[in-house]
Amino acid sequence: MFRAIYEYFKEILLAIRGLINGMRITGKYIAHARKEIITQEYPDNRDTLQMFDRFRGEVVLLHNENNEHRCTGCSACEVACPNGSIEIIWARREDPETGKKKKQIETFVYHLSMCTMCNLCILACPTDAIKMGHDFEHAVFDRSQLTKVLNRPGSKLEKGVEE
């Protein structure tokens, strides 16, 4: 019987200890609330807003300063895309330097309206030509504006990618 009474009070004291532990954690939060707030005041801090590294806003084709990209037109991303957001239109053209015919991209079409930001195209790309951009303000007034051409006009393949 005394055992039962002991267990009863022990249970109560353990419960109180658990509750106090919980309150200590939230108490720590409110004590440091000013410094540790994780909410962004978005429209106000637009200029200084830093998105997280792993944030997926849109697919971008990287270009360097000489207007060169790394896309060979292999269409691996197009195949990997589960909902057909990427269409690569390519052609065999003569390379001005070597004179050989070579596969090149004409247009890298990206349908932002269909993209679910699943990241599969980036994983599929063998040359790391595309990556996820951090821009997230995609609102436009017409749906057709969401179909984008990612390769810049006059851009060509960066040297040494295919070797």
Binding site: T26, Y29, I30, A33, E36, I37, I38, T39, E41
Partner: peptide
């Protein structure tokens, strides 16, 4: 307001 601070919101 207090609830927000407890949850590290504004």
């Amino acid at each position: 307001r207090v609830c927000a601070f407890f949850q590290l919101r504004l």
